[in-house]
Every structure is written in structure tokens, then in C-alpha cells.
Amino acid sequence: MHQIVYHALEKLNMGIIIIDQDHKIVVWNNWMERYTGKSKEETIGEKLNFIYPHFAGKNHMSILNSALKLGQSRFCSSTLHKIFVFPADEGRKNVQQNMQVDAIVCGEERYALLQITDITGYHNRVSQLKHAIREIGLENEQIKIAGDISRYQALHDSLTGLPNRVLLGDRLEAAISSARRNNQKLAVMFIDLDGFKAVNDKYGHAVGDLLLKAVVVRLKQNLRESDTLARLGGDEFMVILFEIKGVEDAANVAQKLLDSFERVFELNEHRASVTASIGISIYPIDSLDADTLTKQADSAMYKAKMAGKNAFKFYNEVKI
């Protein structure tokens, strides 16, 4: 029976070392011979710390002694200790081993059993896995950013950065429901530039684009942060004025917007003059729904154009 157990120990696919109370090596199995290149003749009967001086260190000593004296078992992880016995193949890099220390009691005699496993390959797989997880995380991050960008692009005008027709529709719906809840008025303004096509034809599209950007700057200067200014395309813009007290407020803002066009636009070496025609519809006076308010503002804008441009008109003519 002893013979079988001894042979089994030799065949185990892990390093087995047994030491006695003086730390002298009693068993050094075949795996240890193969792995370390140190034969049984060289090791058995020697002190473990003679073969591997680091076992004389305080930490290792206390691990071995707690098994030999207190009978405690101890698991030592490769992550914290890296290595316990050195492989014969010195070219191997980043070797990682786990070690388990157990007490063996044979009558009066006490021994410590050291089981050593090489888990370098395993560690490499884990670190590849960690790497892969990190990569996937980064990719996911980039996809999210790309998603955010395309969502922004889908809702904004690329030239001016203003909300586009789609986002404006949402904002108008939201503004109407908030005005309904709070019993407030709001104004929709349709703005079309007068003379923009002439500037475009005369100086080219690049200058036309500069003009549109400059117009946006002036419009914004005369609106509140909370108002929405959107570009519908070409030289058409739309404004939602929230929480106005009455039509007078809308008229005042419209006049300020028209006044802002008085100064000549300086576009690099070119100078251009444009004006605007503005049509205004009022919630809830003109209509209760977004589409109709928009159409009404549009048709009021045409009235302003017909009346000689550079003017604002309400959908319902009111005396102010």
C-alpha cells in the first residue's frame, strides 16, 4: 500500500515537497525534479532554505512554522507571492505559482506538506481576458460617443449648430403643453431673410454661410436664453418665445430683431446688408396645435413680404 501511495505522489501533476520540523526536505517528487532541474539526491536531507534561501525570510518562515507548530493550513496566492520555486528553464517569463501548505502529523512527528502549482498560463489567460474586457469597455465608450454625436447631428443644423426642424417640432410640442398647464401664452415667429439670395449670388456660398452665422449671432443677442431659435433650412429661421404676457411682448421682440439688421454685416473683406420679414402666431389665440401655429406664422411672414419686407406681421392683425 505504501508503495502505491508513494508512486502516486511521484506521478502527481504538481510539485510536492514534504519537510520535517527542522525544515529538512523529506519528499521531493518527480514534478519538482522536472520543473526545477534539481534531483532528489541534491535536495532530500537538505534544509529547504538551503535550496531556496527566500524560505528563510520572515514571511515564509511563519507560514511553514504555523503548519509545523500550530497545524494550520495556508494558501498562498500567486498574485501576492508570484513564485516559490524557480523553474529550470530560465527563459520563462513572469512565472506564477500557487502554494498550499498543510500540516501532517505522524505519531509524534510533524511535517509540512507543500503543494506547488504553476499557473503562469492561467494568469496569462486571465490577463488577456482583463485586456479584452478593457478593450470592449473602450469600444463601448466610443460607440456611445459616436451615438451621442449622431443623435446631436440628427437634431441640429450643421452650419449654425441651431436646433433643426425635427428638434424644433419637439420643443414646440413641449412648449405648448407647458403653456397649457400653466395657462400661459407663447409666440411662434417665422423669420425669412430679405436679400439673402443676392448676397449668395454675388459673393458665393462661402460668404452666404458666413452671413447666416452672423445673422444667428444677432438674433441670439435679442432673445432670452430660454427661447428656442431654430434654422429650418436656407435663410429661414423660427423662434419660440416662451411665457409671453401678451402680443405686445412678441411685437417688441420682433421689432428688436428687425432693428438688429440695421448695421451692415462685415464678412471678411465683404460687406452685406440684409433685412428680415417676420410672421407671428400666438398660442392659444390663433391655434392650439403646433402644426397650425407654424403654418400661420409662415403665412403671416408672407404678408410681411408682400407689405414691402423688413417688417413683422401677426397672423391675426391686432392693434398694439
Binding site: 496566492s77 500567486s78 494568469h123 486571465v126
Partner: peptide, 18 residues
């Protein structure tokens, strides 16, 4: 938490409980 992390926890708890 990867398997190598469990090994670290195993050792830490081993030291403390011992």
C-alpha cells in the same frame, strides 16, 4: 472579480481566520 482575485481573497481570509 476574476479567478486570480478569488485566490487573493482566499489567502487574505486564510491569514485572518488562521
Amino acid at each position: 472579480l476574476l479567478d486570480t482575485d478569488f485566490d487573493v481573497l482566499k489567502e487574505i481570509s486564510n491569514v485572518i481566520l488562521n
